[in-house]
Design a protein around this nucleic acid. Structure first.
Length: 181
DNA sequence: CGTGTTTGACCCGCGC
DNA sequence: GCGCGGGTCAAACACG
């Protein structure tokens, strides 16, 4: 399974998992109800088996247990159609990871049972409805959990920048196939 | 002055 | 049906 090819949001690749030396990519979670179903998940032991646990706690417990990943159906009132949800857990001192896109913060929320607030960002590109949530790992504050929701319908500003310099940036930089002939 | 951030209020889904 | 909790909105504020 090659996530980097399936998710344009993912700027990380197996060859270059961390775009910056400060980052240490710990986990890459594919969060999709069709993959991580409650039925699939039920029965497994969790670090914190409390009901009503925040998604953050679920992520944290999941990653701490390496393979316990849960995508709560209906959690967060996600509107259908947004598509892929992807979560990263990486070691970073910074909360905001510069992934090449331009994000606008639209909310901040303290989560129950989680000492660190969760930040909400929207892609500021016109017509792009991708969102991301950023929160610190409840178990290890040096880790940051970034959850992307949706797929960008445009390239990163940096990609466009590079594309304006054809000598420096062939179409390989883009996520679109090169024009035929 | 324009753009981005902050923050309290509001909305809505879910569990009891 | 009610209360709780997470997600979003929008006005005010800050900064370049």
């Amino acid at each position: 399974m090659d996530f980097s090819h399936q998710n344009p949001n993912c700027i990380f690749s197996p060859e270059n998992p961390t775009p910056m030396p400060d980052f240490q990519l710990s986990d890459y979670l594919m969060l999709d109800g069709s993959i991580f179903d409650d039925d699939t998940y039920s029965g497994q032991s969790m670090a914190s088996p409390e009901k009503g646990m925040a998604a953050a706690t679920e992520f944290s417990g999941a990653t701490s247990n390496n393979s316990n990943i849960k995508c709560k159906k209906g959690a967060g009132k996600n509107k259908p159609g947004l598509g892929v949800r992807v979560a990263f857990r990486m070691k970073s001192e910074m909360e905001v990871i510069d992934d090449g896109y331009k994000w606008r913060k639209y909310g901040k929320k303290s989560i129950k049972n989680c000492p660190n607030p969760r930040n909400y960002y929207k892609c500021s590109s016109e017509g792009c409805d991708v969102k991301k949530r950023i929160e610190r790992d409840i178990n290890d504050g040096s880790y940051v959990i970034t959850t992307y929701e949706g797929v960008h319908n445009h390239e990163t500003p940096s990609m466009l920048y590079y594309n304006q310099m054809p000598l420096m940036a062939p179409n390989a930089w883009t996520l679109q196939p090169p024009p035929s002939t």
